[in-house]
Simulated scan of single mutants.
Amino acid sequence: MNWDTIQGNWKQFKGQAQQKWGDLTDDDLDKAEGNREELEGRIQEKYGRSKEEAKKEVDDFMSSL
Rank of each mutant, 00 (worst) to 15 (best):
N2I: 11
D4H: 12
D4E: 14
T5M: 04
T5I: 07
T5C: 04
T5L: 08
I6G: 01
I6A: 03
I6M: 03
G8L: 06
N9S: 14
N9T: 13
N9K: 10
N9Q: 11
W10I: 06
W10K: 05
W10G: 03
K11D: 15
K11P: 12
K11V: 08
K11N: 14
K11T: 09
K11S: 15
Q12E: 12
Q12A: 06
F13G: 00
F13E: 02
K14I: 07
K14S: 05
Q18Y: 09
Q18V: 07
Q18K: 12
Q18C: 10
Q19V: 08
Q19Y: 12
K20D: 02
K20Q: 08
K20V: 15
W21Y: 11
W21L: 03
D23P: 04
L24Q: 01
L24N: 01
T25R: 08
T25V: 13
T25H: 08
D26F: 03
D26R: 02
D27N: 09
D27P: 03
D28K: 00
D28S: 02
L29P: 01
L29T: 00
D30K: 08
D30H: 05
D30W: 07
D30P: 06
K31V: 01
A32L: 03
A32D: 00
A32Q: 00
E33Q: 13
G34E: 03
G34F: 02
G34K: 01
G34P: 01
G34C: 02
N35H: 13
N35A: 14
N35Y: 10
R36F: 05
R36N: 06
E37A: 11
E37C: 03
E38I: 04
E38P: 00
E38M: 05
L39D: 00
L39P: 00
E40K: 10
E40T: 04
G41I: 02
G41M: 10
G41E: 11
G41K: 11
G41Y: 05
G41T: 10
R42D: 04
R42K: 08
R42Y: 09
I43C: 04
I43E: 00
I43K: 01
Q44D: 10
Q44V: 07
E45S: 13
E45V: 10
E45R: 13
K46Q: 14
Y47A: 13
Y47V: 10
G48R: 13
G48T: 14
G48I: 11
R49Q: 11
R49K: 11
S50N: 11
S50Y: 08
S50A: 09
E52Q: 09
E53W: 06
E53F: 05
E53T: 05
K55P: 03
K56P: 09
V58E: 00
V58N: 02
V58R: 01
V58Y: 03
D59A: 15
D59K: 15
D59G: 10
D60E: 15
D60A: 08
F61A: 06
F61R: 04
F61Y: 14
M62V: 09
M62S: 09
S63H: 10
S63T: 12
S63G: 15
S64P: 12
L65W: 07
L65C: 14
